[in-house]
Write a protein that binds this DNA or RNA. Sequence first.
DNA 1: TCAAAAGTGTTATCCTTACACCCATGT
DNA 2: ACATGGGTGTAAGGATAACACTTTTGA
Lengths: 318, 318
Amino acid sequence: MPESKAGIEIGLNAAVVSVAQLEPRILVVEEKGMRPALPFGPFDPARHRTMDMSLRETVEAQTALHMGYVEQLYTFGDRGRHRLPGDQGLHVVSVGYLALTRLEREQALDGASWRDWYRFFPWEDWRSGRPPIIDQVILPALERWAKEPEPALASSLPSRLARLKRAFGASDFPFDEERVLERYELLYESGIVEEAVADGRVGETGLSQPLGLPMRHDHRRILATAIARLRGKIKYRPVIFELMPPEFTLTDLQATVEAISGRHLHKQNFRRLVEAAELVEPSGGTSSATGGRPAALFRFRHQVLEERPQPGLKTRGR
Amino acid sequence: MPESKAGIEIGLNAAVVSVAQLEPRILVVEEKGMRPALPFGPFDPARHRTMDMSLRETVEAQTALHMGYVEQLYTFGDRGRHRLPGDQGLHVVSVGYLALTRLEREQALDGASWRDWYRFFPWEDWRSGRPPIIDQVILPALERWAKEPEPALASSLPSRLARLKRAFGASDFPFDEERVLERYELLYESGIVEEAVADGRVGETGLSQPLGLPMRHDHRRILATAIARLRGKIKYRPVIFELMPPEFTLTDLQATVEAISGRHLHKQNFRRLVEAAELVEPSGGTSSATGGRPAALFRFRHQVLEERPQPGLKTRGR
DNA sequence: TCAAAAGTGTTATCCTTACACCCATGT
DNA sequence: ACATGGGTGTAAGGATAACACTTTTGA
């Protein structure tokens, strides 16, 4: 069965993101006895002119959702990825994509379902303060790993300890919410996520509980890449509105940004930022859904795309 | 000849960058009667475990240069790319890479040669002010293009005029040196670079001179991606030192950053920035190569990787 | 009238930008 | 002595981060 060129196939993996009930959701495929996976499809250049179109059309056909924004993330080609029993000669190179969609009502999804993305990355949710799992589980394990003798080749690279501090923060290193991939890679390298066991890097994680829900193959890495990219992107592109309904309150908008970025934001500063960026305009209506004083409703001002070079929500500090 | 799966092949393209005589250089392959191309090689997963390693080893073997830094850029998979007479069924998906190297002395390069990257992008070199080609050639052509009726589908996207202002700057839109790809794509879409003719998008560019040297296939797009990524990267990672000799003067360092970013920098502010970032330390020696007062020599402080979360040269204004 | 959430005004601090000047060397 | 590039101090302006307080509704 071996062809010439050893059989390479190109697959597309989509991290389809949405926000519902102010929680960030990721679309996963669940099959019994298998770990959750990102939606996957082969790329067939005979059917689709570009990979972007292929991804968009394939996902839209399978889920009946409209993809508002699509962006290529990274191409994952390591030998050993996608290894399955019996899957010998075939090598799958996979192009990861980020796609954003609005979640109107609950829809039939044909085998796929929405999961809170922090189920896979519990250490990324800082909305109500530093997650305890960091100090209770992650740092003890990583500090042990950082003390091991390092492989010789890496002398001019940052030490394990420096990488640890950059990724998870320390006294003089602030926690940076965009370093999602660095954090996941550290956990993978140190052998404390289940995928490291599945890939044969370590015998077992040494933890009594798995550290976040594991995913199939390298899909958690792809999801980490997607979260990182999205957290960065909302700062200079108005992609957050791809996740919002046509009308929303400023508190909803803030909660959505907080859901994506995993951080708590300062209300006044957030509002000033939104106002200064001229991203929204009052729609006239009000919403009394929450119980207190009714909130004014706003809509996205599409004109900002014409007016400003970098329309986004550059949240920095609190 | 059509196989099942239509025959997909994965190629790697490297934008190998160096700086010599304070000019940014790009490694190109030149064959008679053909446009210059980026070095290209097939990805064979049987020989190399990861694509990064494949790229590194292939380029190092072909050029006898050491690649100091390697980074994946983007995967280009459009149908129609890589079209050659006789090349019917085969589809080449190509993964673009950025690689940095030091140029010790002139070395045998086996068919490849170094070219000033601004030969391909004359509108990107703002070191001695706004390049005249922008006002003389580019803006007149793009403004004509922006006035044409736009395709109907793109109603909620930024208008051609807004894209033009964002890409090339205007009164309230500053010129952003990182938007190299946006600028190239605008020139391509509007049909005024030769590649648009070669791809059959337009009959001719309508210009008497080609706008920058054209490259083969979509290689100029890959190079634009590489320049954009590198211009961004030097702001938060010390990759600039991959292009410097072990010892250098601060003026050399500034000139190298200027060569990459295409901008003129304010001397005092640049020095303060370098000092504040603690990126370098005096080596003790001096250099009197230039004619005036001898300059102190510095070397890169590898320790910054341990000390700072984002060691780079965040040049913003002048 | 009280709880709950919406919404606003103001100040201290830091960082960025720009300006102007002095220094050391070779010819 | 003077031309050439190396090297430095300081002040104005703007953006950021944090503070506390008022307003409007439903129960």
